[in-house]
C-alpha cells in the first residue's frame, strides 16, 4: 500500500472473470503521516481510504471484465459501513463482485476483512469510458503487472 500515491492494492490473489469476482490483499503500512493525525495515540485507517481500497479492488475487477478497453471511475458509494478499526500493519483481504453491468456503468459490492473479521463493506457504482489518455493505459498496464494481475487477462496491442 503506497498511500502517498493512492495505490492501495498490493496484490491480486484471485480474479475470476466468469464469476466476476476478485480477491486482493492490501498491507496497511506500519507508519505513515496519516496516522499521526488520525489519531494521536489511536492510529487507525481512515474510512475514506478503506472505501477507496474497496473501490480500487472493484476497479481492477472491472478492468479485467472489460478487457482493459475502458477505464472505470468511481461515481457513487452506497451502504458504506466501517464495521471495525483497521490499525497500522494489518493485512486487508478485500473481495469484490460485480452486481450489475449497465450501459456505461457498473455496480459492485465489496467487503474487506482483517483475518476473519469483516471490517468494512460498500456498494459501489462506477462510470466507465474508453481510456481518456494513452498514458493512463500504460500506467494501468504497469500497475497490473506490479500487483500480479493475471497477464492472460491483459490484452496487449
Amino acid at each position: 500500500m503506497q498511500l502517498e500515491y493512492f495505490q492501495l492494492i498490493d496484490r491480486i490473489i484471485d480474479l475470476n472473470i466468469v464469476e466476476k469476482t476478485i480477491t486482493v490483499e492490501a498491507q496497511v503500512p506500519q507508519t505513515n503521516t496519516i496516522f499521526e493525525g488520525h489519531f494521536p495515540g489511536f492510529p487507525i485507517m481512515p474510512g475514506v481510504l478503506l472505501t477507496e481500497a474497496m473501490a480500487q479492488s472493484s476497479g481492477w475487477l472491472l478492468l479485467g471484465v472489460m478487457k482493459f478497453e475502458r477505464m472505470p471511475f468511481l461515481a457513487m458509494i452506497k451502504q458504506a459501513k466501517m464495521r471495525g478499526f483497521v490499525s497500522p500493519g494489518q493485512l486487508l483481504t478485500i473481495e469484490a463482485k460485480i452486481e450489475h453491468e449497465g450501459s456505461g456503468f457498473a455496480v459492485t459490492s465489496a467487503k474487506a476483512r482483517v483475518g476473519k473479521d469483516l471490517v468494512c463493506s460498500a456498494d459501489l457504482t462506477f462510470r466507465h469510458i474508453p481510456f481518456p489518455d494513452p498514458a493512463l493505459r500504460v500506467h494501468m498496464d504497469a500497475m497490473a503487472e506490479k500487483i500480479g494481475f493475471p497477464q492472460q487477462a491483459v490484452p496487449h496491442d
Binding site: A75, M76, H100, G102, S103, F105, T125, R127
Partner: peptide, 13 residues
C-alpha cells in the same frame, strides 16, 4: 446524469 445512473440500475433490474 449521476441520479440517472441510479435510475438506470433500478430499471435494468
Amino acid at each position: 446524469s449521476l441520479d440517472f445512473l441510479d435510475i438506470a440500475f433500478a430499471i435494468d433490474k
